[in-house]
């Protein structure tokens, strides 16, 4: 079974993964057995009963009710076994343990953001402790998204009009990919994130540390980190090319024409306003799709971003 696992399935990063994989393996080997049987018989018959010399002879017809019943009953039993097995695992995937820590997940075009009960927030990177059940309470701000972590074998649609729930308990530390698996438009295929699983003590430290540049990190470098972490890079290029939003190259101090025809010079206050209230003043020629980062970014994060944008000259 290990051979199928390494070929087909990603690493098992959660408590449910091995169960899901075991059932996958079971179906895989049964299917392989029957598939080889079906193919072998087909090929054998084609060789053995090949029409010779262009003549075909009439042969008496055989009918067998016993055979028909056999190949109805045996697959039915096997399928019921698979159903019950899958059903049990599905129940486990859906019953959230009582001692879970809860994280609020928000999907929107085109990034994930997280709110912890302790007040911490995050974008893109979901930081969780190892060995502790985590409940994700999820909703969307626009269209339907779907939260998928292959290594944990979990997936749940994220809807605009209600909360959906999924949970996992990571069994190993490391970083694992998060994908959006419900088509949501232009940035769908880049709505990536990572789950960063930390040992409990490091996680606690992370939770307390909050935000701000690390030791010895300049505001500009911190801003560069925020630029990627908060998925600004999904819509804003650094090389002058036009994307969903205006490029950041040479943005600071540039004169931009707004959609209402007025022109302004990009300064610290305009950047700050655009992050927190993006619909207030928009550069002409772009769709009004920028989401607000109110409640997600702290002042220090915006300071870092401004420092970073200032550094991006032509």
């Amino acid at each position: 079974m290990d051979t199928t696992r390494s070929l087909f399935l990603p690493p098992q990063g959660s408590t449910v993964a091995s169960d899901v994989d075991a059932l996958f393996g079971f179906i895989f080997w049964i299917s392989l057995f029957f598939f080889v049987g079906v193919t072998a018989l087909t090929v054998y018959f084609c060789i053995k009963y090949k029409r010779k010399d262009g003549k075909s002879e009439t042969t008496p017809y055989i009918e067998s009710m016993a055979l028909e019943i056999t190949w109805i009953v045996i697959p039915t039993i096997l399928l019921m076994v698979i159903f019950v097995w899958g059903f049990q695992d599905f129940v486990r995937l859906h019953i959230v343990p009582a001692n879970s820590m809860e994280i609020k997940v928000t999907g929107q075009k085109w990034f994930w953001s997280y709110n912890y009960e302790e007040g911490a927030t995050g974008v893109g990177e979901l930081v969780v402790p190892v060995g502790k059940p985590v409940k994700l309470l999820m909703s969307s701000k626009d269209v339907i998204h779907s939260f998928f972590v292959p290594a944990f074998r979990i997936k749940m649609d994220v809807l605009p009009n209600r909360y959906t729930i999924t949970w996992f308990e990571a069994t190993m530390t490391g970083e694992f990919e998060i994908y959006c698996t419900e088509f949501c438009g232009k940035g769908h295929s880049e709505m990536w994130g990572t789950v960063k699983v930390l040992p409990q003590d490091e996680f606690d430290k992370w939770l307390e540390a909050g935000s701000g540049p690390g030791e010895g990190e300049s505001m500009k470098d911190y801003g560069a980190r925020m630029f990627v972490k908060n998925a600004c890079n999904t819509c804003h290029s650094l090389d002058g090319s036009k994307n969903v939003g205006p490029t950041f190259q040479g943005l600071f101090g540039r004169r931009e024409v707004m959609s209402d025809g007025t022109a302004i010079t990009v300064d610290e206050n305009y950047i700050r306003e655009s992050v927190l209230n993006p619909m207030a003043k928009q550069v002409a020629g772009f769709d009004p799709v920028m989401p607000t980062y109110q409640g997600i970014l702290k002042d220090v994060d915006i300071d870092g971003l401004i420092a970073y944008i200032k550094s991006l000259e032509n």
Partner: peptide, 14 residues
């Protein structure tokens, strides 16, 4: 059959 199985479909859906 693999996709019809509840727990595995959660992983393989879409």
């Amino acid at each position: 059959i693999v996709l019809g199985t509840l727990s595995i479909d959660v992983h393989l859906h879409d």
